[in-house]
Design a protein around this nucleic acid. Structure first.
Length: 350
DNA sequence: AACACGTGGCC
DNA sequence: TGGCCAAGTGT
């Protein structure tokens, strides 16, 4: 029964799998890079980043020796920037603790920063042929529907139930093929919304198809609530120069750059905006040249309303040590969040 | 254990 | 359009 299911998935995968660059290699370094990029990220979205990273950092020591600023610049636009910071830390760990050789067992792989149960199992099975079941969002969905598992995938109980089912299924030989087949099946056939069950090779024995539960499975309980934030960025113009600020707090976009920011707890009307006196200007004279329209930027847990206030500084303006003074034409060399990138695009002066 | 962490695509 | 979801992890 289980074997028929798995056999069908293997046949389906052999026929339908995508040719992906990280499937053409056994290099654990490249497989690791691909797995980090693909965390919570679609193949289409991550593909160009994979190519950029492998080209710029062909080996783990190339990555370890890089500056974090450069790594974040390459990662710009992908989101979840802690992945890039942790990747850098792990590259340095592999050089320092493993002599530059990627650890080849699950226990050491999962110790690496940014590598959790899913990624450790994926690397162990795909790169080293070790029988660890990788359970990602796709596999939760496939197993929940096919076996009729109604436990929430984001509960501790549910995770244990899915883990034990996945463990039953994992073969000793070709576990990497097995894990990728199941994931690919979820990604292409057993999709979240309106899957084409008529074309599914295992529909005849699928619990959800049989019981009209395809739309109800898998079950998730937690819903994320968003908070609103109001960002007022200052584009400070002094001749050909401007200033950027690095976000160093444990908050969104850590270690990325932005225009000097004033954050408010509520939206400010334009007449209040024009009278704002940012502390970083130290009461020195400035002239407002323009104020952008409000830009709405949506994150998974926040909604940010941002405006860019373009000001011209007097020649006497003293530099502020919190910020980096740059030649404005160099602004594109700094890693910035998508929101700031969009503001830059919309501003004539930049 | 619950929550924070990005972005883009889909309907 | 707004909510859901995508090869999860760290704290």
């Amino acid at each position: 029964m289980m074997n028929d299911f798995i056999e069908s998935i293997y046949i389906w995968y052999t026929k339908n799998c995508r040719q992906l660059p990280w499937r053409e290699t056994n290099d654990p370094y490249k497989i690791w890079i691909s797995e980090i990029i693909l965390q919570q990220t679609r193949v289409d979205q991550g593909m160009s980043y994979y190519h950029k990273f492998i080209k710029r950092f062909p080996t783990v020591s190339d990555l370890a020796n890089a500056n974090e600023d450069e790594i974040l610049k390459l990662w710009q636009g992908l989101g979840y920037y802690s992945r890039a910071r942790n990747m850098h830390e792990t590259a340095k760990t592999i050089i320092k603790n493993y002599g530059g050789v990627f650890p080849n067992n699950y226990q050491n792989i999962i110790k690496l920063k940014g590598v959790g149960p899913y990624t450790a199992a994926a690397i162990a099975s795909i790169a080293f042929g070790l029988p660890y079941p990788a359970i990602d969002g796709n596999i939760y969905r496939v197993l929940a529907r096919y076996f009729g598992i109604s436990n929430a995938t984001d509960s501790t109980k549910g995770k244990n139930v899915f883990a034990s089912v996945a463990k039953e299924l994992i073969p000793d030989k070709n576990p990497g093929f097995h894990n990728q087949a199941l994931m690919e099946f979820g990604a292409l056939q057993c999709v979240p919304k309106s899957p084409n069950c008529a074309a599914c090779p295992v529909v005849a024995s699928c619990f959800a198809a049989e019981n009209k539960k395809v739309a109800e499975l898998p079950v998730k309980t937690k819903k994320t609530k968003q908070r609103e934030r109001f960002f007022y960025y200052y584009l400070m113009e002094k001749g050909d120069d401007t200033w950027l600020e690095k976000r160093t707090e444990n908050d969104i976009w850590k270690n990325l750059y932005q225009f000097p920011l004033i954050e408010k707890s509520k939206q400010l009307p334009e007449e209040e905006l024009i009278h704002l006196e940012p502390d970083f200007l130290n009461g020195q004279p400035f002239k407002i040249k323009s104020i952008s329209a409000t830009q709405k930027h949506i994150l998974s847990h926040q909604v940010i309303y941002a405006r860019l206030i373009h000001i011209e500084l007097d020649k006497s303006y003293q530099r502020n040590d919190r910020f980096v003074q740059i030649s404005t034409k160099d602004i594109h060399t700094f890693a910035v969040p998508r929101l700031v990138e969009n503001l830059i695009k919309q501003t004539e002066w930049l």
